[in-house]
Amino acid sequence: MIEFQDVKKVYETKKQAFEALKGINLTVEKGDIFGVVGYSGAGKSTLIRLVNLLEQPSEGTVLVGGKDLTSLKPKELRAEKKKIGMIFQHFNLLNSKTVFDNVAMPLVLSGTPSNEIKQRVEELLEFVGLSNKAKNYPDQLSGGQKQRIGIARALATNPSILLCDEATSALDPQTTNAVLQLLKKINKEYNITILLITHEMSVIKEICNKVAVMEAGKVVEQGSVLDVFSKPQTDTAKNFVRTVIHDEVPESFLKNNEKDAPVIWKINFVGSTSGKPLLSTIAKKYEVHLNVLSANISEIQETPFGNLIIEVTGDKREIDETFQYIKDQGILVQEVVIND
């Protein structure tokens, strides 16, 4: 649906050229909710703005629905843009127009007859739950309401793609969640492909099925959300995962046992394996003592995702066998290295 092929973007400023994107390869499939996460300045906004040509790529190709938009004539490009909705961090609604007129704007631009506009706008306001605000002005709405209007406006022309540039970054956690659920609903009910960028891993965890981690103009890691969350490879990805999944071995514990270093394992359960009564099986089968240091479970992509940190004591051979046993069950286990 959206394909980045060796895309580079160089910003030419008076003094110097700055390479904001250094060769991006990325594919967003139809029906995806694809999240791009990265620290400030990583190039996320630049990336998303290339999709609807708010920025031109310096090198490489961006294909949207198989088409290279840079090759289109202005008129064809405008038609193509109507198939790509976009919402923004600061909503970008017209303060001089009512909610109704804001949502109607994309339709007015394409010369839709006014009775059709009325019907469509009412439908959209209903969908985002703000029918009663049609006559209000944006400055009379809360942030969350403004973003819903932004969403309604983006959907007006029945797009097949929705771009979200930090769409929830200006909202509080509750409101964020409501807006994310709305995006999920849009993805499901209208089968709209969503590309969103964020610096909050919780947003990715909440609604995305795929994720790309960006750093300094490059995609350093990408894959299904489940994979990246359970097996982050790069430090950046690990740091982001850590913001939503707390699997740190408690600092105090490491200090208390300086004399003989304890054996500590980190165990990740993904999906169905999380339900297995692993610990009790181990206790029965092996001569080891288990001490649970921390445990939590959450859901990613409707898949249970848990992690467990345990201290293991006992005979070295028994411990090794236990380790192997856990691995054999197809469960991700790793030893936590304790450095002095």
């Binding site: 790509i84 976009m86 923004f88 600061h90 970008n92 609604l93 017209l94 704007m105 631009l109 022309t157």
Partner: peptide
């Protein structure tokens, strides 16, 4: 606000439409 113009461009507005549907009403 530049964001308003960006939204207009994202909607596929023509230059002329951006002037009289976005710039002028917002600056009125």
């Amino acid at each position: 606000d530049k964001g308003i113009i960006e939204a207009a461009q994202a909607m596929g507005a023509t230059t002329w439409q951006i002037i009289y549907r976005f710039l002028i009403p917002e600056g009125l």
